[in-house]
Structures are given as C-alpha cells and as structure tokens.
C-alpha cells in the first residue's frame, strides 16, 4: 500500500489526522462525529505507527466495535497502514467531553444536549431540560431510557412533541 504522506513525504501531522477523524460519524447518532462526542483521547505517532486512543461511551454500547473499525477504515482510506486503535478505559468517558460544537449539532438534530455536568449523573431534572424543537422548558420525562443507552425519552408539554435527551453521564 502507498503511504500517503503529504506533498513533502512526511507523516501527516496530528492536526491533519484530527481533521480526518472529525469526519467519522457516530454510528448511532450520525449527526455528530466521534471527535464531537469526545471519544478520541489521543492521536500520536509512535515511530511509524499511528496510535489512536478511544474511550467508549457506555459499557455495552454496540457502537464501540463499529467505531474502532470506522476509525481504522477512515485512516486506511487516507493511506495510513500502520494504525493501532487502543481502547482507553480510564478516566471513564463523560458527557462533559462533548464539544460545544457537538452540543450544538445534537440540539439542531432534535436531541437535547446534557443540561448538567456529569456530577449530576443519575438525576434527570426535567425543569431545566429544554425542548430542542420549540425551546420550551415545559417538558416531562417519559422514560429513563431512550433509543440508545445514552438517551432518555422526554415530551414537551408546550408543543407536545416527543424528543430524546442526552443524559449527563
């Protein structure tokens, strides 16, 4: 395989690799990238091997295996062939790592981003969770769990639309 290394034949610098990683969508919420979600913890060259550290979101999230495969494929498509995607468990992933851009994308997509810091994990204070569709604070919890492990189901009592809430974690 040809190693695509930029015009001067050097290894692509980590900024370039981060930019490529920003194009990889989360398999379950494709509107945000794996970088937006804060899952990529480190990108470093170790000699000729590119090491990418990934922190999974939820223990049983079926997307994790797909994400590591997607990262490998995306970087291989850019011409890299010596890639090590490593699962990094500590510190544990938290919704505090979702970037401001990621939060905006979630909101625009109709998923309310976490209204609290992860210290409030396990609490769903509905009064402060705004409907991502009409902006009303008049919302109610339908179920603690939603279509994926990271979300809860809410309903807006102003516009009556159901919506997902990305739980603080």
């Amino acid at each position: 395989m040809i190693r695509l290394s930029g015009t001067d034949g050097t290894k692509p610098d980590p900024d370039q690799i981060w930019a490529w990683l920003r194009e990889i969508p989360d398999p379950e919420i494709p509107v945000v990238s794996v970088v937006d979600l804060g899952m990529i913890r480190d990108v470093v060259w170790d000699g000729d091997c590119l090491r990418v550290a990934v922190t999974p979101t939820y223990s049983g999230c079926p997307a994790t295996a797909v994400i590591t495969l997607d990262i490998r494929r995306a970087l291989e498509a850019r011409g890299l062939d010596d890639i090590s995607v490593e699962i990094c468990r500590a510190p544990a992933w938290t919704t505090d790592w979702i970037t401001p851009e990621g939060r905006q994308k979630l909101h625009a997509y109709g998923i309310a981003p976490p209204a609290h810091t992860a210290k409030c994990a396990g609490m769903l204070v509905r009064a402060e969770i705004k409907c991502p569709l009409c902006g009303s604070s008049q919302t109610e919890l339908v179920s603690e769990f939603g279509s994926t492990p990271c979300k809860a189901s809410f309903r807006c009592t102003s516009c009556l639309e159901p919506f997902d809430y990305f739980k603080p974690f």
């Binding site: 500590a90 544990a92 992860a118 769903l124």
Partner: peptide
Amino acid sequence: PEISAIAEKAEKEARYHLRRSAS
C-alpha cells in the same frame, strides 16, 4: 487500577439503573 477503572465506568450506569428500578 483495572478494577477501579471498570468500577468508575459501571458506577455511572448503575446510578441510572437504581433510579429507575427504585422509582
């Protein structure tokens, strides 16, 4: 450190589990 890391991750999930089942 491995036990502590797994526990840190799982604890956040268990908190939601208990909230739901207790309620």
